[in-house]
Each structure stands twice: as structure tokens, then as C-alpha cells.
Amino acid sequence: MSLIKQLSALMQHLGQGGLNFFQRLGRGHLLLLQLLTGLLPSLLRPRLIIYQIYMVGVLSLIIIIVSGLFVGMVLALQGYNTLVDFGAEESLGTVVALTLVRELGPVVAALLFAGRAGSALTAEIGLMKATEQLSAMEMMAVDPIRRVLLPRFIAGFISLPMLAVIFSAMGVLGGYFIGVGLLGVDEGAYWSQMQGKVEFGHDIVNGIIKSVAFAFVAVWIAIFEGYDAQPTSEGVSRATTRTVVHTSLAVLGLDFILTALMFGD
């Protein structure tokens, strides 16, 4: 009897979990639909978007620049140690650049964006909900989706691809400092090999397409989690954690799919 009860409770728990998951998925897609339908009117208020670009993009610059530099430096150190065994250390620039523009630039920039800007977006929107600021806007006949969420959505969507490009550029510079400055790789070889092997259309554009896709997912998750958060301090805290975890998983999963489609052949 006890076993039947336990099994029944387990089934109930699983069923409830499944229902909650699909309900949240549905709410997330409904919010996305509302965001997309309000896109054009929101573009007519560029001041709100520019302010949010500053908040989510410009304020993320430091972490992107510093991380990009260090990732490039590590890539140069590791790459050199492998390439030198084959006498191919002059290909270091190509290795660093391709790794960055194809993979690490879009992926790491998106992960850093989730931690720095995504979590801030969720916490800010969640707190506005908890303190009834969004309700107050609704009662003032101001749509919080258009006034609060959309400028942040557009700003994040614009900012992340630019941050990814900056990350890759800083990584290439970091690789240069270590490879050429410290390990003695020929400067001309570093740049010319990179120019010769990195294709704009195949490598750089595909990297940018990846970061555009990551930006869409990262900002959507951050905004939805904030808007759907339980209006309590614990609810906002949980939502912020979910933003970072879900965005990281979504970015890594999406990266595999996009890489397979772009570079799989």
C-alpha cells in the first residue's frame, strides 16, 4: 500500500513537473510573440534603446575586453606548444583567429553576457514586478512590454554580436602579444597566415551569425525569466540563477547545432 502511495506521489510529481514545464514554455513563446509584434513601434523610441545599449552593452565592455585578451593569450600559449612540435608555429595566428571567430568569440561572449547583463536584466525586471512597478505602468495605460522589455530586448540583440566581435579582436591581440612578443613567432607570419586562411564569408560571417542567434536566445531567456519571476526576493533570486543556467545550456547546445550546419561538411 505504501509502495503504491509512493509511486502515485512520484507520478503526480512528474506530471506536475511536466505540466509546469510546458506552461512555462507556452508563456515564454507568448511573451516572444508580444515582443515581436511590438518591435516596430519600439524602434520609434531610439532614446530608450540607446540607454539600454549603454546598460547592457557598454557596461559589459570591460569584462569582454579583459576576458578576450586572456583567452587569446592562453590560446597562443597552448597552440604554440603543439605547433612547435611540427615546426608549424608560424600558423599560430591562423589557429588563434579561427578558434576565436568561429567558436570561442561567440560562445564565451554569450556566456559572459548571460552572467553580466542577462542576470542584471532578469533581476531588474523581476524586482520591478515584485515592487508593483510593472503593475503601476499597466494601470497608467503604459504597456510594460513595450516600455520596459522591448528596449532591453533590442539593446541586448544589438549589443551581443558587437561584444562577440570585440572579444575575438581582443583575443587575436592577446595571441599576438604572447605569440610574437613572448614566444618569438614571426610578426609577418602571424598576420599574413591569418589573413590568408581566415575567410570573411565562411569564418567571420558565420561567427557573427552564431552570436546573433545566441543574442536572441540569451536576451529572450533573461527577459522572460524576469517577467515570469515569482514576485518575492527568493523568486527573483531563483529566476536570476535560471537565466544564467538556461542561457549557458541553450548557447552550448545551439552552438553544436550551428557548428554542425556551418562547418560540418
Binding site: 508593483e132 503601476a136 494601470m139 495605460a141 504597456d143
Partner: peptide, 19 residues
């Protein structure tokens, strides 16, 4: 509904000011 809300106002218990 938004047009109707322009005719009304609600003073929230907490104030609900934009912080």
C-alpha cells in the same frame, strides 16, 4: 482596456514608484 485605463488611476498601497 488601455484606453479605458487612461480615464482611471490607481494609487497603490506601496506607492509603486519607478525606483
Amino acid at each position: 482596456l488601455y484606453r479605458l485605463r487612461r480615464r482611471m488611476s490607481l494609487l497603490f498601497q506601496s506607492g509603486a514608484l519607478l525606483t
